[in-house]
Design a binder for these strands. Sequence first.
DNA 1: GTGGTCTAGACCACT
DNA 2: GTGGTCTAGACCACA
Lengths: 123, 123, 123, 123
Amino acid sequence: MSGLWDDNQPIYWQLRERTIASILDGSLKEEAALPSVRQVAVDFQINPLTVSKAYQSLVDDGLVEKRRGVGMFVCAGARRQLLASEREKFLSEEWPKLVARLRQLGLDWKDLEARWPGREENE
Amino acid sequence: MSGLWDDNQPIYWQLRERTIASILDGSLKEEAALPSVRQVAVDFQINPLTVSKAYQSLVDDGLVEKRRGVGMFVCAGARRQLLASEREKFLSEEWPKLVARLRQLGLDWKDLEARWPGREENE
Amino acid sequence: MSGLWDDNQPIYWQLRERTIASILDGSLKEEAALPSVRQVAVDFQINPLTVSKAYQSLVDDGLVEKRRGVGMFVCAGARRQLLASEREKFLSEEWPKLVARLRQLGLDWKDLEARWPGREENE
Amino acid sequence: MSGLWDDNQPIYWQLRERTIASILDGSLKEEAALPSVRQVAVDFQINPLTVSKAYQSLVDDGLVEKRRGVGMFVCAGARRQLLASEREKFLSEEWPKLVARLRQLGLDWKDLEARWPGREENE
DNA sequence: GTGGTCTAGACCACT
DNA sequence: GTGGTCTAGACCACA
């Protein structure tokens, strides 16, 4: 019940991001049911409304679909869609900004390369 | 009035970050005066209180000093201090998280390397 | 499983409306048997209880009658009854609201006339 | 405090639709401030969260913009955007369905024409 | 002053 | 069982 949540971000958003991560890493398969709103609420000791808000945002993005009276399910194609959009977002938006910042800090390519797991001694 | 501010972050924080960037890239030299609270407020169409909050946070970090009746000035040594702390923060906190995220997205070292300015054709 | 149901309306209601449409257009004749609850449930991949609820609402309105051990049948006079009530409902309730909305949208009589099948070129 | 809300639709949705109607009919001008969440909550005797949900849906559709710590404002171009999208939706989606239904009911063009305000005796 | 978020608990409709 | 909606009231950050 502590250390689970980062207090600087809304819980519903963090829950959303965790769910996305689960889809990406395969622990939530496509067509699989998401844990029910109530279950998650109990498990994480948060309000059902908060869970609902997180899930709804996924529905809005077309990653999850509701089946009335049954539950919420990962959409077919959700993983592929996520991979594409997240990669695109990173490469076109985040990376250029990051590069600019690194330049400003005087950090070089080598500095990063040395800290990329598995590359420390190879090259 | 549009595109100037990212609505997901407090304006005062964005102003702080911009000021830091100016110190880092040298457009705000050490010992130089920061533009006055009023001036910034007018220029950016924001509340003077917001500017004040941004400047105060810089004072709190020892990057800027207030000289009563005169204005706010970049501290001597501010740039060096910034370089050190920002580098440390990036390498120990941000980079590891980023690496984890990239793995999840299936983005490889090569993908980034190809987009590091000046390296596209070298290696 | 996709496109069959409008997620904004209860499934049982949509099934009811479809059945009514079948009676109106004559594909479900008076005195004819409705497809069995089980059959519909299988065909549309929905819960038998949901089908039951739809049929029951038709019984409540006197459009369909249950014959124990045999099945459900369209009542004699159902079509005439439907025509009268639906016309009345449309003209007195729906059309006035629609007219108000069209005004707000600046849509004119002509705009609709042009899209009434068979009138495009007549007048 | 009674008769204000239709119990068949969520309040937040009805509030959304009312606001849209206000923009369309000009009682809410572009760039004008929407009444504050709290004010609406008091005026209509509903929960601030419900108002918030309504307003947020307008923000999501790009019809309203938030100005941090100041309030919510009708976007420039919101009215034009609304007119275009609502007309399009009506003519391409709703009207064809309506026409089919009217045919089924045996209602003719004349029946509607007679009830279009201001046309009863003209033509 | 503004809106954002969360809780605790209730009631509802649908399957 | 499922999710959707709403209330009442709290606390927070921002301007």
